[in-house]
Design a protein around this nucleic acid. Sequence first.
DNA 1: CTGTATCCGCATTGATACTG
DNA 2: CAGTATCAATGCGGATACAG
Lengths: 126, 126
Amino acid sequence: MGTKQYTGSPEDADLMRADSLAREIFADVANKWAFLIIEFLGERTLRFSELRNEVEGISHKMLTQNLRMLERNGLVQRKVHPTVPPRVEYTLTEAGRALRATVDGMCGWTHTYLGHIEESRRRFDA
Amino acid sequence: MGTKQYTGSPEDADLMRADSLAREIFADVANKWAFLIIEFLGERTLRFSELRNEVEGISHKMLTQNLRMLERNGLVQRKVHPTVPPRVEYTLTEAGRALRATVDGMCGWTHTYLGHIEESRRRFDA
DNA sequence: CTGTATCCGCATTGATACTG
DNA sequence: CAGTATCAATGCGGATACAG
């Protein structure tokens, strides 16, 4: 994801592919719902309805939509128990947990700079 | 950003405020353009037009909009040189650089799990 | 060059209803 | 309970024009 100065050399093909894919993944994952889902899921295994309660404010639709997306990218594992009524559980994969580590970093950052941000906002809004 | 089990005790007031603010910041910052801007800015100082070129695909509007947002939250510093034509330079603040460290983590994560993700997608799309 | 404002199409989102 | 589908709204984002 560095500067893009492709000269056309053979090795660049992979870099370009990787870069554009990285962008795509960024666009997928870098939205607040995905982050919140990953963060709340943590090391746990939660059902659809449990997630719905934890991530408050998320709609039924956005939850399923983001869960599908995360599953497609291999970040969450979806386990369906063939019972009635159905019981579906979601867990972070290894890749998901690795991503969560970085999201945790963002959470930590948020708390560290909370004051800084609030003050900056006050000054700006004047 | 942990579980929200507020009992109503006095100390909880701050936690709730911090939590909701953290959410708000998440919603602000967790979008691909903001990430890309932060990532490309790095340790450098760039002009508006330079940023426009680096972050390819971003529109005039989205760039200004995100730059304002980042400035408001105290993540970038905006320096206007009173010349004609105007010259405006953007730099990450300390808070911005700290956030960038975590965004870097995400970039690293992307490259580490690129193969995993591609394969997972192929399987899912079948 | 940088920035604001306006218009407008389109995608995202929520609400609702329905299936297994 | 979990998931899909449909519809309507609204808000995002791009294009354009214009000002300093």
